[in-house]
Simulated scan of single mutants.
Amino acid sequence: MDVLSEALAAMRTGRTRSARTDVRAPWGLRFPAVTGTTFHVVLQGTCWLLPGDGTAPLPLSAGDVVFLREGSAHALADQPGSPLIEFVPSRETPDSPIGQVRVDGPGDRAILLCGAYQLDRARPHPLMRDLPALIHLTRSPELGPLVDLLARELDLSLPGRDGIVPSLVDAMLLYILRAWTGGDASRWGLALSDRAISHALRDIHARPEHPWTVEELATRGGVSRSVFAERFTALVGQPPMTYLAWWRMTSAGRMLRESDTPLRTVAQSVGYTSEFAFAKAFKRAYGTPPGRYRRPA
């Protein structure tokens, strides 16, 4: 059980949308706040990220990737002082996953891929809450080939591009999260590398229907109950049973969104023998009954 992949999959609420952005200086694009999380990949040239919170502009160059956790308002420009226009991609159809933005000018050219991941921010995974507001990754041996593939697919526009590019962009998010969790400052990186805690997370994700207890999880991880509970809470950001309850409801929400599985089966798959008890817990977590959540008015 890959905890990182499962956590990300559970938060998805829609397909990733992006736009190939081909600009020549002078240029500046204003990005409004979105409900998901925003990303930018510099495929060619250089530019500046202008955060909306007034922090210092950030220079970007080819191969750089930027991830904005909150999807907050910001801008990109060839220079910090360039005039800004709204970022409005054109799409062949409203459902096209890849749009186009073009700004002509006499100066240097830059090509970017700009977009947003559709992730549930109402019930964020503790991993997402622990992320910094801005992640900036420079070209690396691991991420560089993926950026090159994106550039190639966008330039050639061959059959299958609309399926390949979103898949590459989705893979890029896992690379971003993997790079961050591998850092020394990441609690989740420590959690995933801690034998007892990572073992417990895999157990919870793989078998949410099991009547887990703190003692059983601690025993399976080879540590005492008190040590396990303290370490889990410190690294994950929630006590073990709180995380278990969160994961059960998150898994149930995902099943309701993505399938027509009967409510009784959904309830049993996340550890509830009573459909009534499940419905009550689900409404407490989501603010709406599971039937209405599946078929919103």
Rank of each mutant, 00 (worst) to 15 (best):
V3F: 11
L8T: 12
T16N: 10
T21I: 11
D22G: 03
W27L: 14
F31W: 07
T37A: 15
L43V: 03
L50V: 03
P51T: 02
G63L: 03
D78W: 14
P83S: 08
S90E: 14
E92P: 01
T93A: 14
C114K: 02
L119Q: 08
P126W: 05
M128W: 09
A133K: 08
H136S: 06
P145V: 00
L149I: 01
R152I: 10
L156H: 07
L156T: 12
L158D: 05
P159M: 08
G163P: 01
V165D: 08
P166Y: 14
V169M: 04
I176Y: 02
L190P: 00
A196I: 08
H199D: 10
I204E: 03
P208H: 08
E215K: 02
V223S: 11
R225L: 06
S226L: 07
A229W: 10
E230C: 06
A234S: 07
A234V: 05
A234Q: 03
Q238N: 04
Y243W: 11
Y243R: 08
L256H: 10
R257Q: 15
T261Y: 02
A267Q: 13
V270T: 11
Y272F: 15
Y272E: 08
T273L: 15
T273Y: 15
A279T: 09
A281M: 03
K283Q: 15
A285M: 07
T288I: 15
T288S: 10
P290W: 09
